[in-house]
């Protein structure tokens, strides 16, 4: 799958079907469609008839010490059988322990112990789903004293040990770099290019002392610059804009996506020259 996509949001269902926007694919949030039936699944099916779709989850909790949720995995597998996504992704995080759920993308300590644990679970998930998955770097606000390696080293080692792919969120790299004081380019340099299958772009809220990853605003200039640097390193990677709140009309996001197309065109032309 190639090109530029958007996160599929309910307020755009009708507009997508009526206007067939200039978007090469859509990313559907898995959990929104892991329901028995009705409007969400109806629209997903109709949009899938016209566009490639990828599934993006928030509940795998691949880093948790709890057992993997087999019910969730079975539901995800059933949804994948119905939607036939190009790929399935989730986040490098944990979402709860002891049978409880914080419904948040909680960061992991980057230790050898956590790496072994997560790699084992990713392999189990991939065996169950019968396909490789993509894991996304999350925005974080805390860093554990126990961490023994950088986030990018952890992600690269995980991709190698678990044989999984990477969904690189450029905004999340920017947010975490600001929050923890590392160089975002160093992050990009640490990621194995062959594993990067998809890129996310999004907006955030800069509170001065910390940046909160809100996904409720336009992509800012420095994130576009970092995206250009990512393309320089990784080449053409399917890219999308992720907007979860204050969602503008579809046409506005399609126009914002044009900026990604333009940057990509420039970078790749220069790279080829």
């Amino acid at each position: 799958m190639k090109g530029f996509g958007l996160g599929l949001r309910p307020r755009h269902y009708e507009a997508i079907l009526k206007s067939s926007p200039r978007v090469e694919w859509f990313e559907a949030l898995s959990e929104n469609y892991m329901v028995p039936g009705g409007r969400p699944l109806h629209y997903l099916t109709r949009i899938r008839e016209r566009y490639p779709v990828v599934l993006h989850g928030v509940s795998l909790s691949v880093g948790s010490i709890d057992s993997l949720d087999r019910g969730y995995l079975a539901g995800l597998k059933a949804l994948a059988a119905r939607v036939e996504p190009e790929w399935i992704s989730d986040h490098l995080c944990w979402t709860g322990v002891g049978g409880r759920n914080l419904h948040d993308l909680m960061p992991l300590p980057y230790t050898e112990e956590a790496l072994r644990h997560v790699a084992r679970r990713v392999r189990t998930v991939q065996d169950f789903l019968g396909r490789r998955i993509l894991l996304e770097n999350v925005s974080s606000y805390v860093a554990y004293r126990k961490s023994a390696m950088s986030e990018w080293d952890f992600l690269a080692a995980l991709a190698r040990d678990a044989d999984c792919d990477i969904l690189l969120d450029i905004n999340n790299i920017y947010v975490s770099a600001f929050n923890h004081g590392f160089d975002p380019v160093e992050f990009l340099d640490g990621i194995p290019a062959a594993r990067v299958r998809q890129i996310h772009l999004a907006g955030h809220d800069n509170c001065g002392d910390l940046i909160i990853d809100t996904h409720d605003a336009k992509v800012i200039g420095p994130v576009w610059d970092l995206y250009a640097q990512a393309l320089q390193r990784f080449g053409p990677v399917p890219t999308m804009i992720e907007r979860d709140d204050k969602i503008p009309p579809l046409g506005t996001l399609v126009l914002e996506l044009d900026r990604a197309r333009a940057i990509s065109g420039n970078v790749l032309r220069k790279k080829a020259a």
């Binding site: 948790s64 010490i65 944990w94 709860g96 322990v97 002891g98 409880r100 914080l102 948040d104 909680m106 992991l108 300590p109 230790t111 112990e113 956590a114 644990h117 805390v142 860093a143 554990y144 004293r145 126990k146 923890h180």
Partner: peptide, 27 residues
């Protein structure tokens, strides 16, 4: 997995009932 378990349990407890303990585990 002892260290990972203890960090996750403490962090989750902190979300439910914020206290000082978890602060010591973070930079």
């Amino acid at each position: 997995m002892r260290e990972l378990a203890s960090l996750q349990l403490a962090f989750q407890d902190h979300v439910y009932k914020p206290g000082r303990k978890m602060e010591r585990a973070m930079l």
